[in-house]
Structure formats: structure tokens, C-alpha cells
């Protein structure tokens, strides 16, 4: 219930109406969106019970490792009601063709694979918010100072997921495991996404805000 309350408001991409349509415009819109979402994610993380009790250094390390997984999981959940489209924001929905034109076809294919998995599982909002928090706590940062404290956070979130499943999904005793088994594909997709946006940064054609740059650099 804490995680449901902590869930951020809807976000809008608001593409610049004065800019002519192009791949650069689409990527600029997405990078701006990601920068604003990062601010929201940092605020959200503070509402995860136990997160703020970690050292500031460990809070930073978890977010630096997991931010793209959290961004992608949010896109995946928003896209569940759609067919073969990715809801980057309420006003920014991309289909296969648009993704191809923007150079994001690989990412589109990977994220859709995740969407299909969660559709098949009929994932619920309670499960989605818990998985997002688990992705953060389980981000495998190599720079954790107090692993015991991070393990405690992982255990608490894992327990929340198990409690939810044992009360709401008694018909499938393996449901929690099935949900956790989606996380490797999420990690793989996020790694690809970070590499892709890092190479866009290196090419220097797309303007990027400071927080997005800072987080991209922390991952590479």
C-alpha cells in the first residue's frame, strides 16, 4: 500500500511544436522526458519504505544502477493496454515504424518482449509497483557500502511480493517466481538502452539535460 501511494502522477512528453518532425526531434523529446522522469524517480525512491534509511552513497549507487530499468518498467506497464505500441508518455506513443525511423527499433522489440510477458501474466498494479522497487533494491551495484542494509531492503520487498501473491493468487503458488523471472530481460533491455543513448550522447546531435547525462555517465 505504501508503494501504491508513492506511485508518481502521469507524465507528458510535450514535444516542441516549433521543431520540425525528425529523428533528432523524437530523440530530443525522449531525452527531455527521461530527464524529467529521473527527477520523479528520485523522489519516488525516497518513499520506498527503508530506502531513505540507507546511506546517501548507497541510495546513489542503487539509483545509478537501476534508473533505466525503472524507466523501462514504467513504459512497459503503461503499454499493457496497447497492441504493439510503446507508451513513452501519455501523449507520446510509438509504433514500430516510428521506432524504426528514430533508430529505436531494437529497443522497441526488446521492450515489447517484456510487454508480452507481463500481458501473459496479467500483471497487476500492486505487482508492478513492487517489481519496480525490487529492481531498484536488486540493482547489483558494485559500489554498495552496507550490503547488509541493502539485503534487508531486498528481503522486505520480496516479502511484500510474496505476501501479496499468497493472499491474492493462491491459485498459482509460483506467481512471485514468474514475476521475478522477468527481471533478467529487464536488465538486458536496460543495458542495451543505456548503451544506445550513450552512443547518441557521444555523437552529440541530440541535446541532453544535465541529470540525464549524469546518470548515463554513471552507468558506462
Amino acid at each position: 500500500s505504501h508503494l501504491l501511494v508513492a506511485e508518481p502522477e502521469k507524465i507528458y512528453a510535450m514535444p516542441d511544436p516549433t521543431m520540425p518532425e525528425s529523428d533528432i526531434k523524437a530523440l530530443t523529446t525522449l531525452c527531455d522526458l527521461a530527464d524529467r522522469e529521473l527527477v520523479v524517480i528520485i523522489g519516488w525512491a525516497k518513499h520506498i519504505p527503508g530506502f531513505s534509511a540507507l546511506s546517501l552513497g548507497d541510495q546513489m549507487s542503487l539509483l545509478q544502477s537501476a534508473w533505466m530499468e525503472i524507466l523501462i518498467l514504467s513504459i512497459v506497464f503503461r503499454s499493457l493496454p496497447y497492441e504493439d505500441e510503446l507508451v513513452y508518455a501519455e501523449d507520446y506513443i510509438m509504433d514500430e515504424e516510428h521506432s524504426r525511423l528514430t533508430g529505436l527499433l531494437d529497443l522497441y522489440v526488446s521492450i515489447l518482449q517484456l510487454v508480452r510477458k507481463y500481458k501473459k501474466l496479467k500483471v497487476e498494479k500492486e505487482e508492478f509497483v513492487t517489481l519496480k522497487a525490487i529492481a531498484l533494491a536488486n540493482s547489483d551495484s558494485m559500489h554498495i557500502e552496507d550490503m547488509e542494509a541493502v539485503q534487508k531492503l531486498q528481503d522486505a520487498l520480496h516479502e511484500a511480493l510474496q505476501d501479496y501473491e499468497s493472499s491474492q493468487h493462491q491459485e498459482d503458488p509460483r506467481r512471485a517466481g514468474k514475476l521475478l523471472m522477468t527481471l533478467p530481460l529487464l536488465r538486458q533491455t536496460a543495458t542495451k538502452a543505456v548503451q544506445h543513448f550513450y552512443s547518441i550522447k557521444v555523437q552529440g546531435k541530440v541535446p541532453m539535460h544535465k541529470l540525464f547525462l549524469e546518470m548515463l555517465e554513471a552507468k558506462v
Binding site: 527527477v39 523522489g43 546513489m60 549524469e214
Partner: peptide
């Protein structure tokens, strides 16, 4: 940590 100053600042903000 100096390199990650925005993240650091946002985490320290109370809101």
C-alpha cells in the same frame, strides 16, 4: 561524488 552532484542534491532535498 562530485561528478554526480544533481543526484546527490535531489536525494538530500527533503521533498
Amino acid at each position: 561524488k562530485e561528478k554526480h552532484k544533481i543526484l546527490h542534491r535531489l536525494l538530500q532535498n527533503s521533498t
